[in-house]
């Protein structure tokens, strides 16, 4: 699939306004027929623009880093463990957390569409839904990591999780060195979205400090 509209070349302006008009027309028809409540549409958008996003997942990771009992619950059955922090629901009905270690690095993809754990990460970024990522992640994950500008040691095994069912996978990254004694809130600040997909690592503590 193509990049977002602003990346299209010149002819996209007319396409864009065509699509814009079409969506407006559609919403008007649906509203007149009483199939949608525009205020409900506004709330859906607001929810995923302001409430549900990767800061949720970062809180889960930070809690797992400081609380071994929570970490154990998260790795055993992630859905209720994540719900303890208030995150649950659509596109996260059945969540599995997979843990990065010195030996194994996990990466999550959906080669068939765009499955992604919404309650902890929000809506997926364009690259996650794009052809390059969906094509490459299962065949050349090291190439994907190179595209993201980092490299894993040669001996590290890579485990790629293709989200083909309603199970949503979520990576628990390793706690970086240099953040000993940090509070949970401070740790959450260094947990990046990409580190929970497996295409990145948490921020280096001395850079985040």
């Amino acid at each position: 699939m193509t990049n977002p509209p602003h990346d299209h070349h010149d002819h996209s302006h007319s396409e864009l306004s065509g699509t814009e008009l079409r969506v407006r027309a559609l919403e008007t028809v649906l509203t007149e027929k009483g199939y949608v409540d525009p205020a409900a549409l506004d709330l859906l958008i607001e929810t995923y623009e302001t409430k549900v996003g990767p800061r949720n997942g970062a809180r889960v990771v930070a809690r797992a880093w400081v609380d071994p009992a929570y970490r154990a619950r998260l790795l055993t059955d992630a859905t209720p463990a994540i719900a303890e922090l208030g995150f649950a629901g659509r596109q996260g009905e059945h969540i599995v957390a997979v843990e990065n270690t010195i030996d194994v690095h996990n990466m999550v993809v959906c080669t068939l569409c765009s499955c992604y754990p919404w309650p902890v990460l929000g809506l997926p970024p364009v690259w996650y839904k794009s052809a390059p990522y969906r094509a490459k992640a299962v065949k050349d994950p090291r190439g994907v990591l190179a595209d993201f500008g980092f490299e894993l040691p040669k001996g590290t095994k890579i485990r790629v999780w293709d989200s083909t069912s309603e199970i949503r996978y979520f990576v628990l990254p390793m706690r970086p060195k240099g953040a000993e004694g940090w509070s949970e809130e401070r740790l959450a600040e260094i947990v990046t979205r990409d580190s929970m997909i497996g295409t990145g690592l948490p921020k280096v503590p001395h850079e985040a400090a």
Binding site: L30, A40, L44, I45, P125, V126, D147, F148
Partner: peptide, 22 residues
């Protein structure tokens, strides 16, 4: 190559918001 957009917003146009919500 996989091309990530720095600080990517959830939506890139108003019509994407409405299409998602619809």
């Amino acid at each position: 190559p996989v091309q990530a957009e720095p600080n990517e917003p959830p939506f890139h146009a108003e019509w994407e918001r409405r299409a998602f919500a619809i």
